[in-house]
Design a protein around this nucleic acid. Structure first.
Length: 279
DNA sequence: AGGTTGACCTGGACGC
DNA sequence: TGCGTCCAGGTCAACC
């Protein structure tokens, strides 16, 4: 479900609601897939930790934790302690009251000292929970698209033979861009998704660099895209889907030139573009 | 190494 | 109503 703007919206909402709260205990479900770290480790790092901040890195939600001063800190837990959540395609992080019925596909519940619960719900189980305890902390697989400079952006694609659409989805290059925002960015930059990344001109890369940042920033302002049932941590829908110019608009007229939007498959992902506006 | 494909899951929409 | 097919916001491991 979520790409950078949706994860940003969710992380901001969570930060507002649970920052400063204390995780008292953790329940983990029986499906092994969502747990990227061993269950014991997740439990031991989270239990008794205070949430210092919730933020986004790429498509990951990062909970920065600290030991509760009123409790004994375990000696093995020095350095930065973080809870990392990736929502996959269908994951949600909900803040609920305890008597709220447990939704189907709930895989983790953290009980908070405030009396509320943080619940991770994910029908498809592509999402992942992990904990990180290191000096440096979690930095994500690639570079942040919102702050990258043109020079570095250009360097990412140099010599690459893969289609620019596939390169935009490669999280080791830019992290956070997913299928919606790759298609929308390429439309706004006027670039065909199948073009070889390494063969884009300097001008095209400049336009793409600008488009990616503009599309993501606009989407954050509108709370992300709700294409089926996406809602943020407070159950609110996003509205950027109303600004989509190509994504899931197969056969509909281009909003600029009326040409029907085409759908092709690149890297196994549905890819939408205007054959006239994008070259 | 970089590039491509299929596997991993559930569920909703659609056609018959 | 049901059953089959296709599609969906994302990674990964396994191949070439």
């Amino acid at each position: 479900m979520p790409e950078l703007p949706e994860v940003e919206t969710i992380a901001r909402g969570l930060d507002e609601r649970v920052r400063g709260d204390l995780i008292e205990s953790v329940w983990l479900g029986s499906h092994p897939e969502p747990l990227k770290s061993p269950a014991r480790e997740i439990s031991s790092v989270l239990s008794g930790s205070r949430i210092r901040k919730v933020r986004r890195v790429g498509k990951h939600i990062v909970f920065d934790l600290e030991g509760d001063d009123r409790r004994k800190r375990k000696p093995s837990l020095n350095g930065q302690r973080q809870w990392i959540v990736h929502l996959g395609m269908s994951g949600r992080m909900l803040v609920t009251v305890p008597n709220e019925p447990i939704a189907k596909h709930t895989h983790a519940v953290a009980s908070l000292a405030s009396g509320r619960e943080l619940r991770f719900v994910d029908p498809r189980r592509f999402g992942r929970l992990s904990v990180v305890v290191t000096e440096d902390g979690f930095s994500g697989p690639g570079t942040e698209p919102l702050t990258i400079m043109l020079e570095e952006f250009t360097k990412l694609f140099r010599g690459r033979k893969t289609p620019i659409k596939a390169a935009l989805l490669n999280q080791k290059l830019l992290h956070g861009v997913g299928n919606i925002y790759a298609d929308e960015s390429l439309f706004r930059a006027g670039i065909r998704p199948r073009r070889q990344a390494g063969r884009l001109t300097a001008l095209e890369l400049k336009r793409l660099h600008r488009s990616v940042r503009e599309v993501l920033q606009e989407a954050i302002k509108l709370g992300g895209s709700s294409v089926s049932d996406y809602v943020d941590s407070e159950g609110r829908k996003g509205f950027f889907q109303l600004q989509h110019r190509v994504y899931l608009r197969t056969g509909e007229p281009c909003l600029v030139c009326d040409t029907p939007i085409k759908r092709i498959v690149i890297g196994g992902r549905g890819t939408h573009y205007c054959p006239k506006c994008q070259r």
